[in-house]
Nucleic acid binder design. Structure first.
Lengths: 384, 384
DNA sequence: TCACCTATCGGAAACGTTTGCGGTATCGTT
DNA sequence: AACGATACCGCAAACGTTTCCGATAGGTGA
């Protein structure tokens, strides 16, 4: 009954167990095991999916796929006529190159990864937009990951990017990352990394940030020049470099004008809305209430402003406020918020620029550090 | 002098032109052409880059790569011991699977594409965040494209996604797209598409949007109940469905309360800041100035508010304003902006959810249409 | 006519996986 | 003994490219 698939005879066949649910047979003559192939069946639905490949083009033109590949690129070894024919056929068959296959052989994915702590404010989306623009222009895709301010997911993100064989990485760290093995893993495989905004001191990679120190200095100087003398500072989490730099600017501005630096006028905020309110309360409840506050960023400044309004504290006469980063809300609140503008989209663009040249230059790239300028935007909240 | 690379003799060799800059030779005996292989040289720098593959693991353990592959997944045909050994070796060699190769053979990239018109407001970033979250949870990457409100780049974006073999697409159209061949291309290859926010009527795909009609109805009804009678509407670009739906809600609210619908109280805005100001001016300059305006979104409402403030028009007593979408700025402006809240992150999450099930179900997926609820948030700008 | 050239093409390996199926060893059952 | 079952493994093809290099045809100068 059962025919050997090789010698097509019937005598010397015996059963030989089952494999994966199917009966298996053994042909003594051929000394071969085999199972019966199933019915082809159900080849109905499948036409839809097929995307044309270079071998489709090659077959249609009766040439080899190498030739098609050459025609599709700028290669010398190609007859202009066949090239034209290939190009036309490609058009006709609606050919879309499979970038996955290409990436595999060139071991270059034309993709960069971005890891950001969050996505809620306008800050990181804007940076991503900037980075995405220059990446797209250079033919690169962007994979975005949110670490959600968690070290663990940041590590997971890094592994995902590694698995996707990104050509480079842009990263702004979590406020809780203190180990960097997951970043060093990129280096080990020659994948360039550029930090932005929240950078890592102890790694020798490129970094893009704004001149936080100078911005803070200008901001506090502005408050002093407007007659404020008891100036507080709502700072960020101590782990971040930008916190330290802005705090440094605050401190040095005071020193420059011979004002005392008072420990209790500096409160640290973890940047959440809730904590911002708490910090605002703490300052406004002091006996010797500050007459001005320099805030680590605009959202914090706005919470402070709302809290002050609640207590009928007049802004700017009784309380001057300066924020940092020029978020849209600050322009619209009353009084309008004085703030330090940072070129947010530029951060993304610069970081991506640097990353792309790093990718291009490969081994002989030397890391650089870029510090972008800040501008003080004076509005109503600090003028008296 | 020159030895044949096959027969290693010298007599029957003759030159035979040059190929790609290198001298070519011909061996009569072997009837073979050949060029001299170059020095191996410069194999110095390369250790860095190599990432361990399954064959590295296989060699280290002296087994075949198929076995390694099976060990790395949940496959039955594997000895628990060898599986453990493989897993440990993988750990030890710091193995990261190459998702590109995997995608190639499975013809599934585990990537979804998102096309959005822009990235500037908080709206689209928030949607993307929502979508990215559910995608990440399901092990999908996200590629983001900005069409910049341009039909041409939208088409280009679509081709990029196609070339990257995304498994599905989330899209919110440009305001100027009227042809849909680039979208249909996805369908043709069995790649599911889900529209959100700015959807396309004439395609039978899944769609996620908010109940614009109902939101608008509630908003205008609210204005009427607060005694406003001459209510204008700054609408969006006519090409968008949401514009028509919100306009419909506006119109039907008037009808419900027997108020006349006046053509000249509806102005269309292309959603740019500049045009918003212009629309605001147009309405505020009318002889029979409206006593309230329902705006197609918050940014437009805010521009209107600023323009009204410039003219010392009292809000809400002389002019009631309601916006749409509850952007952060509206909460902070004075008077605070009454607005229709839409669950922005939910739009992204829902769209991604639907897309993922569409991907999973394949052929037998039937498109669905999801309409998310809106909520009227009453603040100061519309109460009198 | 012969030696060598140029222009153009095809074959095949390689990239790193997954997977169908045949092969082998061992063990249990008549 | 002999047949059949089970467990596990390896081989090789396939995914869609790129690219090295050998092959061929036809030219050109001596």
């Amino acid at each position: 009954m059962i025919k050997c698939t090789r010698c097509s005879q019937v005598h010397a066949i015996s059963k030989s167990g089952t494999v994966r649910g199917k009966q298996r047979y053994y042909c003594k003559d051929c000394n071969m095991y085999f199972t019966l192939p199933e019915e082809p069946a159900a080849e109905i639905r499948q036409h839809k999916k097929h995307m044309t490949t270079i071998v489709d083009i090659a077959k249609a033109l009766n040439i080899s796929k190498s030739t098609v590949s050459r025609a599709l690129h700028e290669h010398s070894d190609i007859n202009p006529q066949t090239k034209a024919a290939v190009l036309e056929m490609a058009q006709q068959l609606d050919y879309q190159p499979n970038l996955l296959a290409k990436s595999l052989v060139k071991s270059k994915s034309n993709t960069i990864g971005i890891i950001v702590p969050e996505f809620l404010t306008y800050f990181f989306p804007t940076i991503i937009m900037g980075a995405q623009q220059v990446a797209a222009q250079a033919g690169y895709n962007v994979i975005i990951c949110q670490s959600q301010e968690s070290y663990k997911t940041e590590v997971a993100n890094a592994n995902i990017l590694l698995a996707n064989r990104v050509d480079g990485v842009l990263i702004s760290m979590t406020r809780e990352t203190k180990k960097f093995d997951h970043i060093k893993a990129f280096e080990k495989h020659g994948i360039p990394v550029v930090f932005f905004n929240r950078v890592c001191d102890e790694m020798n990679t490129s970094k893009v940030l704004v001149n936080d120190y100078e911005g803070a200095l200008k901001a506090v100087e502005h408050l002093i020049k407007n007659g404020y003398r008891n100036i507080a500072h709502i700072a960020g989490p101590p782990s971040l470099l930008l916190t330290r730099n802005r705090l440094g600017g605050y401190r040095d501005a005071l020193k420059k004008y011979n004002l005392p630096f008072k420990e209790d006028l500096v409160v640290h905020c973890n940047l959440s809305k809730k904590d911002a309110v708490q910090c605002a309360e703490q300052l406004l409840n002091m006996k010797n209430r500050p007459d001005a506050v320099f805030c680590v960023n605009d959202p914090v400044a706005i919470q402070l402003m709302l809290e002050a309004k609640k207590r009928k504290i007049k802004i700017p006469s009784e309380l001057g406020i300066v924020g940092f980063s020029n978020e849209p809300s600050g322009e619209v609140i009353e009084p309008a918020l004085t703030t330090v503008q940072q070129p947010v989209a530029d951060i993304g663009r610069s970081a991506a620029d640097i990353l792309l040249t790093a990718i291009k230059q490969g081994e002989d790239y030397v890391p650089e550090m870029k510090s972008l300028k800040t501008t003080l935007i004076v509005r109503e909240s600090s003028k008296r």
